[in-house]
Design a protein around this nucleic acid. Sequence first.
DNA 1: CGAATGATCCGA
DNA 2: CGGATCATTCGA
Length: 150
Amino acid sequence: MRLVEVEAYLGASDPASHAYRGPTARTAPMFGPPGRSYVYFVYGMYYCVNVVASRSSVAGAVLLRGGEPIEGVGDDARALAGPGKLARALGLTTAHTNLDLVRSVLSIREAPPVPSARVVRSVRIGLNQHATTHEPWRFYVRGSPGLSRP
DNA sequence: CGAATGATCCGA
DNA sequence: CGGATCATTCGA
């Protein structure tokens, strides 16, 4: 798949982040080395996949919120549209948390750059409590069918 | 809009 | 321990 929507989460400075109140068993990967996965279970039925993106001991990760299928014709264009659906389509669960994404079963690779005119930067969505950060830490490809919100 | 559905975390 | 919470999704 091709990633078309992501959101950034930091640590102590980001009230909306799972890492806001320090490390726990669940959020430990967020405080570990970059390039690993952080997968968690929400709402009793969905998993969400993150890529840890800051150096060890500094919390920071990127939530994968949307993707477009690129292999397998006839794929539902919206099968990866949303963090819960993306994790489900990839078959990822908490069993896949804290895995090395560079040299492991999963791999994230560089792709031809998306023209910057098609990249939109906005505020994060789906956040409840906390004065949700007003920082524009959500990035997505304009018009993609793989977005969590069409 | 609200239900589904269960792990997690904090406060007591 | 108990209950409030939740970075979601789907269907009325």
